[in-house]
Nucleic acid binder design. Structure first.
Lengths: 155, 155
DNA sequence: AGGGATACCATGGGCTTTCATGGAATTTCA
DNA sequence: TGAAATTCCATGAAAGCCCATGGTATCCCT
């Protein structure tokens, strides 16, 4: 199932050492898109979850900012660059496909125990299941899928 | 492995001897970009913090700012440029990755105790946590990240 | 098509290396 | 010769690395 896009729903565990397996299909998408074994994780803007990209997408954004603000070192550029890069973490995964979640991301995503990966095309989302089920903005059908996943694991 | 730009948020301590560890991932980025174990630190133009570059990027920034002031022969000319350049320091870090902050930078950045490194793409910023939380120009989400970091350290 | 073998994946544990930080030792210069 | 600055070593904690395991899906062969 190799593809250019992130799709599907997966649930993996955050262990005591804050390790988390990136689903194999997502890893393959990441490597297809960027050629590197690296994920960029950042807090989402409008939802209590994290967003994941391949590093190529991030570099594209970086290039765009650099071009748009060429010659401009005013506050606008500073803010954008700061917000975009400071809140993002660049994480490489190991031979088993696991990343280590830094404390900030654990905190912002409220991740402990099970973590949900939701494919979303050019990126994916990473949710604490409880927050997803409690969110008003999530499609009920998706919630059903999640509930089924949790039940299959005795949660 | 960690890319060629600065990203992420880190908090290290300024000790009694004014020593400060540059985060390992930033050191790696610096060496990737410039091939030297050297940081340039200067006061930021639009924010109460310091900015850090690898030497290569500093030269680019230097050229752009100098060009901006090129046609200005009024009385105000040079004050800003003087501040930016005169107080810029080229600091090499030691085997443990530590730089020693000169008094002028300590004062300009109001740094004592914890210091925040914010990745911003081609450069990074160095903040006193209190000043960042008090600044109106900083994105609220970024403040959340910083608060989470401080809480994790019992501040 | 069935059933056995195989490859892959998520997860756990232990071991090693690296990192941030503190302190001591040594040098430098007034 | 004393104070300040710089270099070196020590340490606890965290991050990363390697191998092991159990379970599931996949392949293959007759």
């Amino acid at each position: 199932m190799r593809g250019r896009f992130f799709s599907g729903t997966y649930m993996n565990q955050v262990d005591a050492k804050h390790r988390l397996s990136v689903p194999a299909t997502f890893r393959e998408t990441i490597e297809t898109r960027s050629g590197s074994r690296t994920v960029v994780l950042a807090p989402a803007e409008h939802a209590p979850c994290l967003v994941g990209y391949d590093i190529g997408h991030f570099e594209a954004v970086h290039a765009e900012i650099a071009a748009r603000f060429a010659g401009d070192f005013g506050p606008g550029r500073g803010n954008l660059a700061r917000t975009l890069f400071a809140s993002a973490e660049t994480l490489g995964y190991d031979d088993n496909g696991r990343i280590i979640l830094p404390p900030i991301l654990l905190e912002l995503g409220e991740l402990s125990g099970p973590a949900l990966f939701l494919g979303a095309g050019d990126y994916f989302e990473l949710w604490a299941p409880g927050l997803l089920l409690a969110s008003d903005d999530v499609d009920p059908r998706l919630k059903r899928v999640v509930r089924a996943l949790m039940q299959a694991r005795g949660l």
